[in-house]
């Protein structure tokens, strides 16, 4: 059967990673390609590079990072952050990324999802969505944008279903409530979205221990779990997480 995936997310600013100060194994700190390679050798299933470069003129640096990753890493990887036009998407895909992740720009312009899916197929289009618990919403969750700072009028489940119908082939679901807490993923919203859409759901936000991944992959019904700081700071290796999951009966690639 299909394996559950472990995805590592790297935040990249002007071509350098912003986390990973305790990263070991002689990795050049701050170089996303070196860090990606280290995770590749640990057996990560997929990588996400999130471009948090603020200035538009420094954005092209990311294309160079993508091209270097594509030459070295032989697993799928996704690029997100700051992609708001068909041309942005085209550049990233042609540089060698398998997938693009669309977040705030997709909320502002849902047609971007359809455009991207027509260009490269649904399997290359990931909807990134940030959600907050909100009892005023029908599903109990509201979509927020700009890193969680700006609420939208969108209901989380309705937006997920709409994005799927527009052509999104995967959803990275990030709970702003859980993000940064290291107290575990938000299982309720993950299960809600994952059991209602027909595309894979990658759970994000809140991972602190391997047990948190087990919970979201089993109880939360996620297809994949995204981790960042718990591996960047050397607390766990990807392999340790996977060995733990395999022991607990989660089918992972070892």
């Amino acid at each position: 059967m299909l394996k559950k995936r472990i995805v590592v997310c790297l935040d990249v600013k002007e071509g350098k990673t912003t986390k990973g100060i305790k990263f070991q194994d002689n990795v050049e700190l701050g170089d996303p390609v070196e860090m990606a390679n280290a995770y590749y050798l640990q057996g990560v299933d997929e990588l996400v590079f999130y471009d948090i470069t603020a200035s538009a003129e420094k954005r092209p640096i990311m294309i160079d990072v993508v091209a270097r990753v594509a030459q070295k890493i032989f697993i799928p990887f996704c690029v997100g952050g700051g992609l708001s036009s068909a041309e942005d998407i085209r550049r990233v895909i042609l540089a060698g990324a398998e997938k693009v992740s669309l977040n705030s720009p997709a909320v502002k312009n849902p047609e971007l999802i359809r455009t991207a899916a027509r260009m490269y197929g649904s399997q290359s289009v990931v909807l990134g969505m940030d959600v907050l618990a909100d009892p005023a919403m029908k599903s109990g969750y509201r979509v927020v944008i700009n890193g969680g700072r700006t609420p939208t009028g969108l209901d989380a489940l309705e937006w997920a279903l709409q994005a799927e119908s527009l052509g999104a082939g995967e959803i990275v679901l990030n709970s702003i409530d859980a993000d940064g807490t290291k107290a575990g993923y938000e299982l309720t919203v993950t299960r809600l979205i994952s059991t209602h859409v027909g595309v894979p759901v990658v759970a994000s936000g809140g991972a602190g221990t391997p047990e948190h991944l087990r919970a979201v992959l089993q109880e939360g019904r996620a297809d994949a779990a995204l981790v960042a700081s718990m591996v960047h700071y050397g607390t766990y290796t990807v392999r340790q997480i996977k060995e733990f999951l395999a022991e607990k009966g989660v089918d992972v690639r070892l």
Binding site: Q123, V199, R221
Partner: peptide, 19 residues
């Protein structure tokens, strides 16, 4: 085919690592 396995729908495309 889209189907049910362990009471959950099989997602298509088949995407990810399989044996």
């Amino acid at each position: 085919p889209k189907g049910e396995v362990e009471a959950r729908p099989l997602k298509v495309p088949h995407m990810g690592w399989n044996t």
